[in-house]
Design a binder for these strands. Structure first.
Length: 552
RNA sequence: GCGGUUGUAGCUCAGCAGGAUAGAGCAACUGCCUCCUAAGCAGUAGGUCGCGCGUUCGAAUCGCGCCAAUCGCACCA
């Protein structure tokens, strides 16, 4: 049991004792005993506002409640309790508690940071899901970083997670890709063409076409238009998918499942539509089929099948989400660009009408990314003629900096990405700062190892009682809680922030506490603490998908 | 007009299941390398938490209204 839980349990039984004695009376349900690490050290190691929260329930002053609890509490880890402020209970732990706790973490080794399994349900996280019609841009990069970090964090927190990429490989966008590549193909082979008005203008389309020509030459030029379109479309699709997977791999992003939209056409889409038709969720009007989404919170009804018989994107999305629910996930998490928020109501309405619980579908929005260089916004890529491709960003600032910067901010804040800062190799740059702390620890290990200093199984942790040492120990204790919260809130920025704070706490330790040149038992205890610290930094950086270099 | 998100130090942002004197980094100023990486550390200064009203013993945090920024409101995705 964690220290926190032990204290909470002790408080709870004290409350029960007080009620049995008649000192406290109530007729309502009591809240949980929430323990927090107080903002100031003089407020103890842990604190709870339980007495203040229950003042109304017990119809007594918070101070009296706190006194009654304090009088009845019994715990072998609490040294003393002080009642402060408006009724806070501040707990001061017995001196040896943190060393026993540290020993547990030390013994856990690489398992520290991996929380107990949360049961058998699997949670699906779907993210990126960009159309295979162009290069991933920095907005997708933010989604890729956030999605992969959330998956990593949730797994560390003990959830079973499956990641998925939905490939929009059907419909208009693919037609546009096909027409664009066809035009470039003819153009590159010397034909005079009119580039399609709604085609993709980016150079990446020309690059794709060049690769196709390099492989297959001009042999499609003589084919009838429809046959050529069919072949070029497929070749372009394959090329675009390779390009996309390549970028993601270089960005440290992997998926368990690649789900093709084509597999939904037409049977699964029709099946979903039939169900909705039969239960009144879909009706016909003006030659089109409409989803009656306004009955379930949407602004208006939406077209599912166009007048011309083509299903809309929404039709595929309904079938897709139905399929997800049918696969039995305990929870579905989608990461969407903020510009898609208008879709939530209609998709949830459809799920409700299909008999699923829309509450199980959680949608996380990623706000926009703006790049800045020299204080100026950078909007377009000079080479690509489009939004800045992720690969250009990676080439400029590196994967580690790109990922860390994407993850520093909460997903629902717009992100100003300072390219100059991300590139700078200085303490101003948070990712370097954290990595530097890790490299420094590794350096210490190299030198202590040369000096013949080795850690044994029973380091004398209690020798470490200075502020810098105790601060670092306590900071490490916070890690499992941070993982749990980051997972619950889908908030990778918590980990980014935590590891930065940890690096900062370590830096103070580094200043005050030498290893080489101090008495051997103390040196070994400190070294053991650094082992735990190094592991924690590395573990947290891994969750973020950022490397932990041993030298810098 | 309707809806989402955001508004906290000069700048970029944490904090938001209500709680103790609102935090961090950058920028500014001041110190610190005979010492395991100065890619570092310590300190000073900097705030009507957009505005107003309300709920509460207590509001940056919850509710309502307003203002501003941004995204969206297709038989596009």
């Amino acid at each position: 049991m964690q220290t926190k839980e032990k204290i909470a349990a002790a408080v709870k039984s004290a409350v029960e004792a007080a009620m049995n004695d008649g000192a406290l009376k109530f007729s309502d349900t009591l809240p949980d005993v929430a323990l927090e690490v107080p903002p100031k050290k003089e407020f103890g190691d842990f604190a709870t506002n339980f007495a203040m929260q229950t003042a109304k329930i017990f119809r007594t002053s918070p101070k009296k409640i706190a006194e009654e609890i304090k009088a009845r509490i019994s715990s072998d880890i609490i040294e003393r309790i002080e009642i402060a402020g408006a009724g806070f209970m501040n707990f001061y732990l017995r001196g040896d508690v943190i060393y026993r706790e540290l020993k547990k973490i030390f013994d856990a080794g690489k398992n520290f940071g991996h929380l107990p399994n949360k049961g058998n349900v699997t949670i699906q996280v779907e993210y990126v899901s960009a159309n295979p019609t162009g290069l991933l841009h920095v907005g997708h990069g933010r989604g890729a970083a956030a999605g992969s970090a959330i998956v990593n964090i949730m797994r560390a927190a003990g959830y079973n997670v499956e990641s998925e990429y939905y490939i929009n490989d059907a419909g208009n966008q693919m037609d546009k890709l096909t027409k664009s590549v066809n035009a470039r193909y003819l153009e590159l082979l010397g034909e005079k063409i009119d580039f399609p008005e709604d085609g993709y203008q980016g150079v990446d389309i020309i690059d794709t076409t060049k690769r196709i020509i390099a492989r297959h030459g001009d042999k499609f030029i003589t084919l009838p238009e429809d046959e050529r379109l069919k072949i070029l479309g497929e070749l372009a699709y394959v090329d675009k998918m390779l390009e996309l997977k390549d970028d993601l791999e270089n960005f440290g992003v992997e998926f368990d499942v690649w789900f093709s939209e084509r597999t939904l056409h037409p049977d699964k889409i029709n099946a979903a539509i039939e169900i909705l038709k039969s239960n009144g969720g879909i009706y016909e009007k003006d030659g089109a089929l409409w989803l009656a989404s306004s009955q379930f919170g949407d602004d208006k009804d939406r077209v599912v099948v166009r007048e011309n018989g083509e299903p809309t994107y929404l039709a595929a999305d309904i079938a897709y989400h139905k399929n997800k629910f049918d696969r039995g996930f305990g929870e579905l998490i989608n990461l969407w660009g903020a510009d898609h928020h208008g879709y939530v109501a209609r998709v949830k309405a459809a799920m409700k009408m299909l008999g699923y619980n829309p509450e199980k579908l959680k949608i996380i929005f990623l706000q926009m990314v703006s790049l800045f260089r020299g204080g100026e916004a950078v909007k377009m890529s000079k080479r690509a003629g489009t939004a800045i491709p992720l690969r250009e960003l990676m080439a400029e600032v590196g994967t580690d900096a790109a990922r860390y910067f994407f993850l520093m901010r909460s997903t629902d804040s717009q992100l100003d990405f300072d390219l100059d800062l991300a590139k700078s190799q200085s303490a101003d740059n948070p990712v370097y700062y954290v990595q530097y702390a890790h490299a420094r620890i590794c350096s210490i290990f190299r030198q202590t190892s040369e000096a013949g200093l080795t850690i044994d199984d029973e380091p004398k942790f209690s020798l470490m009682n200075s502020t810098a040492e105790v601060d670092l120990i306590n900071k490490i204790f916070e890690y499992p809680d941070e993982i749990a919260k980051a997972a619950e809130e889908y908030a990778p920025q918590r980990i980014a922030r935590y590891v930065y704070d940890l690096a900062s706490t370590f830096s103070a330790f580094y200043r005050d506490c030498r290893i080489l040149g101090v008495e051997k038992d103390l040196a070994i205890a400190r070294l053991a603490l650094l082992k735990v610290t190094r592991h924690t930094i590395e573990h947290a950086l891994n969750l973020l998908g950022v490397s932990a270099p041993e030298r810098m």
